[in-house]
Design a protein around this nucleic acid. Structure first.
Lengths: 206, 206, 206, 206
DNA sequence: CATGAATGAGGGTTCATTCAT
DNA sequence: AATGAATGAACCCTCATTCAT
């Protein structure tokens, strides 16, 4: 075996792949799909153009892959925060807390997901799916609370959509601050209050 | 429509300019800033490429100009709806009603404004300014109601931001429906309820 | 009408188009489809890259178009030479004469058609069609002579194919000479003799 | 097959080299010089890219080497068929028979040699040399027969060239058939007749 | 010997922009 | 004013070639 691939090589390979993906997230988040060039990405990752195409089939595939992966990760993370609580107020607080944490910790992720507009037809579908998942993330516990008559009657889908929009907007504004960490706790608190008001008074059942 | 020359006397003179702007709104809204080409625009407007550069210095300037104009128009329209009422609940309902009307009547306007943070650096600033204006649109009457102690104490800025996000998200979803008009009234009603719940019980003062 | 397009403009436009096509024939003939670059072509034609794409949709389309056009032209020319005579020996002589004339006058045309190999799947089909047309060009008068029993019995298709190959080979060799014109007449004479021998003794009928 | 190492002792050692050469012939014949990629070759040969450059200096060298080797092999084979007979008609039949056999048995060889004048400057020379050898292959016995006055007076070089072209064309057509073997015998027969007619009536001398 | 990750020049194509008419 | 032919920088991607392992 004149060429061992499971040693350092493997690590370097993965590191290169990873650094390109990170660079890609950064550039895509910053400039959007069209304005981001492959050259931008490889320059940041400090590799040659050809290397990009050694690891990824093309720009669009990488982008959609990145989008999907990131979206799934975000949804999973929030989902876990949600199911770890049983009462609506605690669920709201947990989801928002998780979301804000993520935004502070990995702002590029959030920016990537909110690029919107229209990079490519393929993205439009992806984006819709993502928004839908986010909506369902809120709608599920909301519907349960409604079923238990713990919340006043309302259109759960519209409420969920509105919450998704509200949370995104507030978090984006938060990220635009010079030092988002400082305002994070306050934002979580007030945003939670907003959502709880918006879904009406919660009455605990026995 | 903000991009229509309001001076009837030069209607003929500016007809090309106008048709190009209308075409531009349409194309930008549909494909985003980068994917939209000058050729797309002039083809729809049925003029030559050179004509574009007679009326506008370049693509980006037109875009930012269009964005500003459209944003101002939207804000003005909602502003008027807002000031025509004196009580918070009526104001909420009026703004949302006006917003939905506009979205149904001229969806391209809304889509143009929500294209997102990509595009160009110049747009980022513009977008922030627009979001800020929208926020203030809500924050002003909200603050007044708070001052009059008609609403429970809350962070008026965060509430306003959240409302902006909520309304946008719901209206975008509405526009994605095959026949938005049919759902318009219901959306106005439920969205208004959402916002009113989110700002807490309103107590009318004498 | 501020822009008249049927005047000098038209001429210049056509001249540019023409010069690019000539350059393309030259480059394609010289290097073959793949080795020929769009940049090669525009440099010879002394225009910018963009100009190429203003006149032609893409490299492949231009190539196939050029090939078709050239092939048709060649076949037409030879066809006319053929039908202008009624007797087989005169037909043979006329076709060969016309072919050699063309080769001397416009050598790039012949080279373009014989590029062969495989530029692109699309070309393979084209090339076959062209060879088929050439074959039929010979087979038609040959069959007629056979029907009139002016030539000895033979497989007219194979004979025609063989003649096509023979003529091409000899003419290509001729073109490789430093001064093809000098050898042209002799080649026509001897090639005609070859073909006449190859189809057997001709017996004129009354 | 010319590209097969004839030394059994180093069969193992050169197995990669051999399989790459076989793969190369196949790929070059199929796609032509430029469209064939080194990757295509090594994938078929099931070795790594680097291995290619251990055995061959570069793509072009391999190609020209392959071309030369193949051309020599073909010429040798036909030569042997030619010298094994003493009379012109038998020589013609033997050469054509050998050519057709080879074409049926190893079509890639023939296709490789007929790829054409594109490729690379270096190939042009090679190709000319090969055509020249083929021409001489026919011209030698032809001249001899002429010297013996067994054939009518003619330009032996032109006749030889024409025969070369004729034979190639017919054999290429044969290879394009779905099942070339079925038509092989008939083609040999008729092609032989064609050539014999084309060189004029053969008179056996004592 | 053999590997395959890495390179970067170069190819086809697009598109914002200019300018002679 | 208006036109559209012309430009060329820049984009995405391919592929021959190298070299550390």
């Amino acid at each position: 075996m004149p060429y061992r691939s499971s040693d350092k090589t493997r690590q370097k390979k993965d590191s290169k792949r990873t650094s390109m993906m990170q660079a890609a997230v950064q550039v895509f988040a910053e400039k959007g799909y069209h304005a981001a060039t492959v050259r931008d990405i490889v320059e940041i990752a400090d590799v040659a153009v050809g290397t990009f195409y050694f690891y990824f089939p093309d720009k669009e595939t990488l982008f959609t892959h990145l989008y999907d992966e990131t979206a799934d990760f975000l949804v999973q993370t929030l989902q876990q925060a949600s199911v770890s609580r049983s009462l609506w107020p605690q669920q709201v607080q947990a989801i928002i807390q998780a979301y804000v944490n993520l935004a502070i910790f990995e702002p590029a992720i959030i920016q990537l997901l909110l690029i919107g507009g229209s990079g490519t037809p393929a993205l439009a579908t992806r984006r819709q799916r993502f928004r839908h998942q986010l909506t369902q993330l809120w709608q599920r516990p909301l519907t349960e609370a409604l079923t238990n008559e713990q919340l006043p009657d309302q259109d759960s889908r519209l409420t969920a959509e509105a919450i998704v929009g509200a949370v995104d907007e507030v978090i984006l504004k938060l990220l635009n601050l010079p030092e988002p960490e400082l305002a994070a706790d306050g934002t979580v608190l007030n945003l939670t209050r907003f959502v709880l008001r918006a879904t009406g008074p919660f009455r605990e059942k026995t």
